[in-house]
Computed example of a mutant assay.
Amino acid sequence: MDLALFFQEQGVDVFSEVSIDTLSDKDRSFVVQFFPGARFVIVFGKEVPATIYLMMPKEKTQGMLRIAEELNKTAVRLAACMESEHIPALPVPLYLPIRVTDGSVQGVVRLKQVAAAGGLGSLGRSTVLLSPKFGPRLMLSGVVTGHTACESGQAQGSAQREDVPACVECGQCVSMCPEGALGPAGCDAFRCRIVHAWIPSVLVPATKWMLARRIFLKCMAPFAPWIARTATIRCSLCVTKCPKFLEITG
C-alpha cells in the first residue's frame, strides 16, 4: 500500500509506521492489549493552525474538534483500505475507550509516545509532542496493524528523526498552568482546567473508578462525541506559552 499517496490525498501533514519493537515495554503492552495481533502502529497528524489558539473558547473548541474528527475519519478509511488488502488493522478510537493507569487517564494507545518513537517529534515537559515543523501544534491519530503496510517496508516519517526538536526545559508550561496540572509525574488530567470544569475534585475518585470499568466505557461510547462537542477548551497555555510555539509559528 502506498501510504504516502494515501495520506497526501487525505491532507495529512506527517506520518510514520512504527514497529512495536521500538516502543517502551509499557507502550508495547498497551498496543498489544488493544490489538493482540499488533506488529506496527501507523501514527499520523495534522497541524493545528496557530490562529485557532487565538480564537474565543467556543470557536477554538470547534476548530480543534473539526481537525480531530477529520483525522479520525482518515484512520477509519485507512483501516478499511488495509483490510481490503488483507492487512489486519484497527483504528485507534478518538474518544472512547480510554484507560486509567496509575491514576492517570490516557488513550488505549499513547499516540504521542508512539509518534516520538517514530521520529515525528519529542515529548515536552507538558507531555505535548514537539514536532520539527509544527512545534506543539500537531494533532494525532493512528491505526494499529498486524504487519507492515508500506510498499517499501519503511516509514516515510522516519526520515524526520534527525530534525526532532528537544524540550528546552524552560518550565514555562508548568509555571503558566493555572491549575497546577503539570508536574514531575506529567499531566494530571483531572486538574486541567478543561476537565476540571466538568468534573469537580470531589467527583474525581468516583470518575476514575467508573473509567476503569469496561462496561461503563462501552455504554458511554455512543455519547462521547456529543459530550466532546458540548465541551469547551478553556485553556491552552501549556501550548501557547511553549517557546517552540513561538519559534515555529513566528
Results as ranks from 00 to 15, higher is better:
2 D>Q: 14
4 A>Y: 02
5 L>H: 07
6 F>S: 10
7 F>A: 09
8 Q>E: 15
8 Q>R: 13
10 Q>Y: 12
12 V>M: 04
15 F>D: 07
15 F>R: 07
18 V>N: 04
19 S>Y: 04
28 R>S: 14
28 R>F: 11
29 S>M: 12
29 S>A: 15
30 F>W: 00
30 F>L: 13
31 V>N: 02
35 F>V: 03
38 A>Q: 10
40 F>G: 08
45 G>F: 07
46 K>C: 05
49 P>S: 10
49 P>H: 05
50 A>W: 09
52 I>R: 01
53 Y>C: 01
54 L>M: 06
57 P>M: 03
58 K>L: 14
60 K>Q: 14
61 T>Q: 12
63 G>D: 00
63 G>A: 07
65 L>T: 00
70 E>H: 12
70 E>G: 00
71 L>Q: 05
73 K>N: 11
73 K>V: 13
77 R>M: 12
79 A>H: 08
80 A>C: 06
82 M>S: 12
83 E>L: 14
84 S>N: 14
90 L>P: 03
91 P>W: 00
96 L>G: 10
97 P>V: 01
100 V>H: 14
103 G>L: 13
105 V>K: 05
107 G>H: 05
108 V>C: 09
110 R>C: 08
111 L>H: 01
114 V>N: 06
114 V>D: 08
117 A>V: 07
120 L>E: 05
122 S>F: 01
122 S>E: 09
125 R>K: 07
126 S>V: 05
136 P>I: 01
142 G>R: 06
149 A>S: 14
149 A>W: 01
152 S>N: 08
152 S>L: 05
153 G>Y: 01
155 A>G: 15
160 Q>N: 00
160 Q>I: 01
162 E>W: 05
163 D>Q: 08
165 P>E: 02
165 P>G: 02
169 E>R: 13
169 E>K: 13
172 Q>N: 05
174 V>H: 02
178 P>E: 08
182 L>K: 01
183 G>V: 05
185 A>R: 15
185 A>Y: 09
185 A>S: 12
186 G>S: 13
186 G>V: 07
186 G>Y: 15
188 D>Y: 13
189 A>L: 15
189 A>P: 01
190 F>Q: 09
196 H>L: 14
200 P>H: 13
200 P>K: 11
201 S>Q: 15
206 A>D: 15
206 A>Q: 15
208 K>Q: 14
210 M>S: 14
212 A>Y: 04
215 I>C: 06
218 K>E: 13
219 C>R: 10
221 A>H: 04
224 A>W: 06
224 A>H: 04
227 I>H: 13
228 A>N: 12
231 A>W: 12
232 T>L: 10
233 I>G: 00
235 C>Q: 01
236 S>P: 08
236 S>D: 14
236 S>M: 06
240 T>I: 03
240 T>N: 01
241 K>N: 02
242 C>T: 09
242 C>Q: 03
243 P>I: 02
244 K>T: 03
247 E>F: 02
